[in-house]
Write a protein that binds this DNA or RNA. Structure first.
Length: 835
RNA sequence: GGGCGAAUAGCUCAGCCGGUUCAGAGCGCCUGCCUUACACGCAGGAAGUCGGGGGUUCGAAUCCCUCUUCGCCCACCA
């Protein structure tokens, strides 16, 4: 309280200590006040192996701003943090570690490998949470969840078995996206399509009767080894005579039929399609319709399998492609090759080109789940910020396809299905608890080897993090939640599925608003990522300038629906505004605090409260500006326009409070003019409000200063101080108008002084007449007197002889400059300049 | 191929349900200041026909059309 504040704000000295104080005080948990309406945000769980990057920084800063705002507004706020076991990502990381030891997961075996991953997770898991603390996140750590802990695993089982029993989960042979590096199936969302320049080959397939050939076009010639037919459109005149004929598949001895199928686009390529049911979705469907064989010619690693001719065995798919093309060329069966731009799927984790592959997997039937989720959006129970994202959501829901949920990984929730090994029984049992005997025949059972897509557990988080499937008090009080803050990339991966899960298992949407913020990018608009090396480490920024500076910059830079651009080569430029602003607040606070040593009169409520007649023009002006700022910041936060809230508070603190008000009251504080107690009261009050308005964005510096304001009981904490509200009694629009006019006047005079090179202290004389009631006049005279002083002008006299604003300037040479109305001062200055 | 977003001062971006914050902020730049809170600061200043073209309107950065250039999302045309 009494130790002097350093002239430069030093975040390192206060942040961690302050954070510990908040935690000790238990400020992050929801209030128990029964009347307090809950406000709940579930944190999008970072991967358990992640280290904090700017994307987390932005995401969690936004959540913290909203949570702190609502907490101050008296809601029982609950921000539930957690981490995600991130099946494929985490497994990949640990496999890479093993690779450095020259081993693979298969060398270890399943159980030891999982043990190894757990070890790693225990090591790294807490890291990101600690980093979120450095950011200042006011999450309720006592409720931290992990998607693979026992409780959440139970929720996964419950969800799986429930859906299974409802017939919404099924197992089937299907063409899935296969990653030959991760050796697992992927969902459609996990297969990222990228446009690429590729080639398309035209191949001759000779007719078996030697009467000619049919030309097919393909982008993946190696798959022809698995062809079991050729398809043309039934109405395609060119091929009418070929339908029903047989071709001899080159490079093999297979005879395969030419069939007619509506799915073929006669306008594309040659109008004839080679059909490879085991390696292409469209072909698979055509094959099914025509009873064509599925010949899988690749191994899981995407090498040619034993089903291919012997000379291809073991060849990588791209080597095989070259070889196939060569052989066609040698046989004179290669008609040509064209450039072809097309979309190719890539693994979202390792970027390997996806191989469509026939395989037996588990799926969730999505249409029945999507219907209520679409309705919830249509009837307004679910809304999106920005709004247009809702249309994307709806489109996806309307065109939803079944979700492949099985993964051929070891790290994850194992599919809770057991197969009875008894020959006569052979039942398939889905169970909430592990079983070791067939419940029907008592025979031995074997659990499915696969694990679930990591998003299967993620979709349950709004429920499971609150205790579901148990009907816990938390679930009762805090479900459904309110705001989901996340990146648009995972709208489909995660958000849409959470909505469906919430509706399915709890009958209501898990949150009412989805706030989708932008992506953090570099100046070339590339996404910041470790692999590109264009990232900025948030912890570096926190170390240099403090969490408040980082948070301010992120918030100020993110208008709704737009990306945040930062320059990784110039951290200083990117974050200086936040750093400077924190320092500005700090110093304004230093100055005000140093002037509040004695008792400070309240602005209202008690007998010695400042009466409105005591308020000078500047006082009324700053109070009015303060009120306007409260309204602005509050409305902006309510509408998720965090950048506008930050800008409004910034303007108020810097342009109004510091640049004008504090300068204006100095003579009163120093004692040159009466009314110091009033100035002190107003300064204390408006600064208090400014700190509270800024607390959600800059929690540390505001808390430090606020606690030092006079009249704070021991242990007082801005984090739970009431959000400021507008005091109508103090509002005074005319004060704003007048003071703004005076600002203009002073600025014009200052400019004139510069123009004429008038020396400080012996410059321009100012006369002012005021408009309005006499009390306004008196206040205005004081103000002008003061402003004239700080402008190095000499204030001579004022008269109330005329009504209406009227300023007269006279420079040292005696030139008069009458101005009709204060608004015209600028123009008059212009006129004078010309004379 | 379908859908969406963005183009505003040298740079990064606000403003965009038409007209008193309308041409703005921060950084950078120029001039003068270490004025007893802050040089991470103070005061003043230069700088943009709001991507091009057309239209609606009394009036458009703001609404409509079109073109150009970027970016994103979705897509089983082999």
């Amino acid at each position: 309280m009494s130790e002097p504040l350093a002239p430069q704000y030093n975040p390192q000295a206060i942040e961690s200590e302050l954070y510990r104080f908040w935690k000790q005080r238990g400020l992050f948990g929801p209030s128990d006040a029964p009347a307090a309406a809950p406000y709940v945000i579930i944190m999008p769980p970072p991967n358990v192996t992640a280290v904090l990057h700017m994307g987390h920084g932005l995401n969690n800063t936004i959540q913290d701003v909203l949570v702190r705002f609502e907490r101050m507004r008296g809601r029982a706020t609950l921000w539930v943090p957690g981490t995600d076991h991130a099946g494929i990502a985490t497994q990949n990381v640990v496999e890479r570690l093993l690779a450095k030891e020259g081993r693979t997961r298969f060398d270890l075996g399943r159980e030891p490998f999982i043990e190894r991953v757990w070890e790693y997770v225990h090591e790294t898991g807490p890291v990101i949470l600690r980093q979120l603390e450095a950011l200042g996140c006011s999450a309720d750590w006592s409720r931290t969840y992990f998607t693979f802990n026992d409780a959440l695993s139970r929720a996964v089982r419950e969800a799986f078995v429930t859906l299974y029993e409802k017939g919404l989960i099924y197992r089937g042979h299907y063409i899935i996206n296969w990653c030959p590096r991760c050796l697992t199936a992927l969902s459609n969302e996990e297969a990222e399509k990228e446009e690429e320049d590729g080639r398309i080959w035209r191949l001759h397939y000779p007719l078996a009767d030697g009467s000619g050939h049919v030309t097919v076009a393909t982008t993946r010639p190696e798959t022809m080894l698995g062809d079991s037919g050729v398809a043309v459109h039934p109405d395609d005149q060119r091929y009418q005579r070929l339908i029903g004929q047989v071709v001899r598949l080159p490079l093999t001895d297979r005879l395969i039929p030419i069939v007619a199928d509506e799915a073929v686009d006669p306008a594309f390529g040659t109008g004839a399609v080679k059909v490879t049911p085991a390696h292409d979705l469209l072909d698979f469907e055509i094959g099914k319709r025509h009873g064509l064989a599925s010949i899988d010619v690749m191994t899981p690693e995407a090498r040619m399998s034993l089903a291919a001719p012997e000379r291809f065995h073991g060849l990588d798919r791209y080597d095989a492609r070259r070889r196939v093309v060569e052989e066609f060329e040698r046989l004179g069966l290669l008609e040509g090759v064209d450039q072809h731009r097309h979309a190719v799927g890539h693994c979202y984790r390792c970027d390997t080109v996806i191989e469509p592959r026939l395989s037996e997997q588990w799926f969730v039937k999505m249409a029945p789940l999507a219907k209520p989720a679409l309705d919830a959006y249509r009837d307004g129970r679910l809304r999106f910020v920005p709004e247009r994202r809702g249309d994307e959501y709806a489109r996806w829901m309307e065109n939803i396809r079944d979700w492949c949920i099985s993964r051929q990984l070891w790290w994850g929730h194992r599919i809770p299905v057991w197969y009875c090994q008894a020959e006569r029984c052979g039942k398939m049992i889905a169970s909430r608890t592990d079983i070791d005997r067939c419940p029907d025949c008592g025979g031995p059972v074997r659990q499915d080897e696969d694990v679930l897509d990591t998003w299967f557990s993620s979709q349950l988080v709004p429920l499971s993090s609150l205790g579901w499937p148990d009907l816990t008090p938390d679930l009762d009080r805090f479900y459904p939640g309110h705001t989901m803050v996340t990146a648009p990339e995972i709208l489909f991966f995660w958000v849409a599925r959470m909505v469906m899960a919430g509706l399915e298992f709890r009958g209501n949407v898990p949150f009412s608003t989805v706030y989708l913020h932008g992506t953090v990018r570099d100046t070339q608009h590339r996404k910041m990522s470790k692999s590109l090396g264009n990232g900025i480490d948030p912890l570096d920024v926190i170390g240099l300038y403090g969490a408040d500076a980082l948070r301010y910059t992120l918030v100020a830079g993110s208008a709704v629906g737009t990306d945040v651009i930062l320059d990784p080569d110039d951290i200083e430029t990117s974050f200086a505004p936040g750093r400077n602003f924190a320092n500005k607040l700090w110093n304004a606070g230093r100055f005000i605090l140093s002037n509040l040593q004695g008792p400070v009169r309240p602005l209202a409520g008690t007998r010695n409260a400042v009466r409105s007649s005591e308020l000078a023009l500047a006082d009324r002006w700053i109070i009015a500006r303060c009120d306007a700022t409260i309204a602005e910041v509050t409305e902006a936060l309510e509408r998720f326009r965090l950048n506008e809230a930050a800008a409004a508070a910034y303007r108020f603190v810097w342009s109004d409070l510091a640049d004008w008000y504090i300068e204006q009251i100095k003579p009163r504080l120093i004692g040159e003019q009466p009314g110091g107690d009033v100035a002190r009261a107003v300064a204390a009050q408006t600064f208090d409000v400014a700190l509270r308005l800024l607390h959600p964005v800059m929690p540390f510096v505001t808390e430090t200063l606020w606690q030092r304001l006079p009249g704070r009981p021991a242990g007082a904490c801005i984090s739970v101080a009431p959000w400021p509200s507008v005091d109508r009694r103090a509002a005074n629009p005319s004060a704003v108008e007048q003071f703004d006019a005076l600002q203009e006047l002073v600025s014009a005079v200052r400019a004139l002084r510069g123009e004429y090179g008038v020396q400080p202290g012996k410059g321009v004389e100012v006369w002012v007449t005021a408009r309005g009631p006499s009390d306004v006049f008196d206040a205005e005279r004081d103000t002008v007197q003061r402003l004239a002083k700080i402008s190095d002008l000499r204030f001579d006299q004022a008269t109330r002889s005329r009504v209406g604003a009227h300023a007269v300037l006279r420079d040292g040479t005696g030139v008069f400059m009458p101005a009709e109305g204060v608004f015209d001062v600028g123009r008059e200055a212009e006129r004078l300049r010309k004379e």
